[in-house]
């Protein structure tokens, strides 16, 4: 269905290009836009297999999250939110919640450069066959944001963690 949609869109744009003979200049503009974006410094370090890369720029990020005890509290609230959210509840209600929370603490601790080593499954294996949609993924992010807010994690620090987690959608979202 999505493909038909795209195709329609392309056809319309194609007709627009033809009619106005602007295709070349539009393409040039698109290129200029993309190429002209400022190359700001990346914050994420090198890839480490089963989870997102550790953020290694040596800031107080891990402390902003209250260290390991802070992460444990966040995960308790996070799981409560996931179970209260009708979009995520069907996934987490039947799962081993204590285990997932423990794995999330390890995972986030490693990403935040807190000196942990994540011992769980890689994201593709952990979420295989679940049929997670993009909407489910965003729902989980929202529930995590609310848990972090409840624990007074600075918003900019929350965003640094979320920026590291977001690309994992490729291994988690199925359609």
């Amino acid at each position: 269905m999505r493909h038909e949609n795209l195709f329609m869109g392309d056809q319309i744009m194609y007709r627009i290009y033809r009619r106005t003979n602007l295709s070349v200049s539009l393409a040039a503009l698109a290129f200029a836009c993309t190429a002209g974006l400022p190359a700001l410094a990346q914050t994420a370090g090198a890839t480490s297999a089963p989870t997102a890369p550790t953020i290694t720029d040596g800031t107080r990020l891990f402390e902003d999250f209250g260290g390991k005890p802070g992460l444990v509290k966040i995960m308790d609230d996070f799981m409560d939110n996931l179970l209260a959210d009708s979009r995520t509840k069907p996934f987490f209600a039947p799962a081993d919640q204590a285990h997932i929370k423990a794995m999330l603490v390890e995972q986030f601790c490693q990403i935040l450069n807190g000196g942990c080593v994540y011992s769980g499954k890689d994201m593709a294996t952990a979420h295989a066959g679940m049929g997670v949609t993009e909407g489910d993924f965003y729902a989980l992010v929202e529930d995590l944001q609310k848990a972090m807010n409840k624990n007074h994690i600075p918003f900019a620090s929350q965003n640094r963690l979320l920026a590291a987690l977001a690309p994992q959608h490729r291994d988690i979202v199925e359609k």
């Binding site: 539009l26 503009l29 698109a30 836009c33 974006l37 700001l40 900019a156 965003n159 640094r160 920026a163």
Partner: peptide, 22 residues
């Protein structure tokens, strides 16, 4: 006619957009 490029630089809590319009 326009082309827009938008990026959320989430680690910086910043959203940038550039649009070129004919």
């Amino acid at each position: 006619f326009y082309v827009s490029a938008t990026k959320l630089l989430l680690a910086h809590s910043l959203l940038l957009n550039a649009t070129a319009r004919l």
